[in-house]
Amino acid sequence: MRQKLIKCILFVVACLASILGFLGVVLPLLPATPFFLLALFAFSKSSPRFQHWLLNLPGIGDDLRSWQTHKKINKQRKPVIYLSIFISFVISISLLMGQPLIQSMLIILMLIILLCIRKLPEF
């Protein structure tokens, strides 16, 4: 019974993370990748069928499969990742004109994220 409850909770978490991931694709301040990685983990523990679905999504599935297999990022994809993060943060920062504290926090957060991505292993 306990295991069934845990699977159910993980499935709900995976579904919510997937929704947030899809929203993150179109919303500048919401990151998509961490939510898709969380969804992949939760689906792997709760629903192999939905894990397979997520791994075969166009545009997202290849990167998720690569991460799941190698725990590395494709070297050619890093510039695209850097650029998309930079553009989304610039849009968010420009929308917050007149709020220097929040803008500064976003700049620091962007730099931290870019540094973390830079340190990820490549293949």
Rank of each mutant, 00 (worst) to 15 (best):
C15N: 08
L95E: 10
P28R: 11
L10C: 09
S66I: 04
A17T: 05
I73R: 07
L5R: 09
S66Y: 12
I60E: 00
S46V: 01
L40W: 00
L54F: 02
N74R: 14
A17G: 10
G21K: 02
I85V: 15
L55R: 01
T33M: 02
R77Q: 13
L106A: 10
H52E: 10
L54P: 02
L115K: 13
S66K: 08
S46Q: 07
K75E: 13
C15Q: 08
S104E: 03
F22S: 06
H70N: 14
P48A: 11
L29M: 13
S46R: 04
F36L: 07
L27H: 07
Q68R: 05
L40I: 01
D62L: 01
L109C: 11
S104L: 12
F89C: 09
L95F: 15
L30P: 03
S44M: 10
L27I: 15
L55T: 01
I19S: 02
L29V: 13
L115C: 12
S44I: 02
L27W: 13
G21V: 02
I81F: 12
S94Y: 08
I81A: 15
D62H: 07
P34L: 07
L37S: 03
M97F: 15
L37T: 06
L10A: 04
L16Q: 03
L29H: 09
F22V: 12
L101H: 07
L16D: 01
F50L: 15
M97T: 12
Q103E: 08
L101D: 07
T69L: 12
V12E: 00
H52V: 01
I113Y: 02
F36P: 07
L37Y: 03
P48E: 13
K4S: 01
I19Q: 00
L106S: 09
S18G: 10
I60T: 00
F35W: 11
C15H: 02
L5F: 09
R65W: 01
P58Y: 05
F36I: 04
D63W: 02
L30V: 10
D62Y: 03
K71E: 11
K75V: 11
Y82R: 13
S92Y: 12
Q51D: 09
P100G: 11
K4Y: 00
V13M: 12
L106H: 06
I93V: 14
T69Y: 07
L54N: 03
F50Q: 03
F50M: 14
F43H: 04
F43R: 03
L115N: 12
W67P: 04
Q76I: 13
W67N: 02
G24R: 11
R49K: 14
M97L: 14
K45A: 11
Q76S: 14
I73E: 05
I108W: 10
